[in-house]
Design a protein around this nucleic acid. Structure first.
Lengths: 144, 144
DNA sequence: GTTCAAATGAAACAATGTTGCAAATATAAC
DNA sequence: GTTATATTTGCAACATTGTTTCATTTGAAC
């Protein structure tokens, strides 16, 4: 992924904090929290700058916010450049054991019917449980 | 609903802030935010007390927390005394127009399949859009 | 290099989440 | 009703996050 090209195509200036944030998200396979990103970057940029950089990146649709809980927010790149991605329900998995968040591209909410007169705009789905790696670990411990 | 009886049955002491919170939630048809509850009660209790009251009520399962966004949290009574309610996915609707949150008892997520080795513990579903009342209002405006 | 709009950094503030501890209170035992 | 005890409350203090204003700096277009 060419971060600089992407910023240009979204009409955002190539600034150091934006490039740093995008690189961190690009290098990590799973969504990262604000503190995780800041830890990866280091204490280079102001907190407010970080916050505003996230906002501008979300606004143009380069990244998206995943709210696990009111105290836990993760960010991930929008790999899909398809505009229609917004119409597909977001499904995220939060592992209560390792605290990692995974985007479940393959998991799909099959169907729901809203009451008469209601219209859907977005749908955020967060499934909380135990991921494959932790499940194995837990099972392994019980076997000992 | 008898608030005092319910507290007793959940082995929580009948304290003024808990009773006040439960009454507010009981009297409102839709989930309320912390500030909405505090506004209804008045400035009687300490902020920390409020916070801890909410925690204890959630812990025993008398109320539940609905996280719409990391900046918007609502609380609602668990009307259903059935223990199995926890196994059913929570579906909430957030109206972007009137900012109200509604528990959608009748809306059900039909099916989703997690990857091999993953296990589900909870599933929070928040559908954002426009509710029936606001939809009518918006349509009405267009008709003029 | 100059110019101008955009982005940053600093200060200041609001809201929320959390802990430790002393004082107050609910409940149970008497 | 009084007393004892465990719970709950209120206060202080602090951490994190969200947000605005404004002067300064920077990016990129010319």
């Amino acid at each position: 992924m060419n971060v600089i090209e992407l910023l240009k195509s979204h009409q955002l200036k190539k600034t150091a904090p934006r490039v740093a944030i995008l690189n961190v998200l690009n290098n990590s396979k799973i969504p990262q929290s604000e503190s995780e990103i800041k830890q990866a970057i280091g204490d280079l940029y102001d907190r407010i700058t970080f916050y505003r950089s996230m906002h501008s990146l979300i606004e143009v649709g380069m990244i998206h916010k995943i709210v696990i809980d009111n105290t836990l927010v993760k960010y991930a790149l929008n790999n899909c450049t398809d505009e229609h991605v917004h119409e597909v329900d977001h499904v995220h998995f939060y592992c209560k054991t390792c605290s990692k968040v995974m985007c479940m591209e393959e998991v799909k909410i099959m169907l729901y019917v809203l009451p008469q007169g209601y219209s859907k705009n977005e749908c955020d789905v967060v499934i909380k449980g135990c991921c494959g790696s932790c499940e194995k670990f837990v099972l392994g411990k019980h076997e000992n």
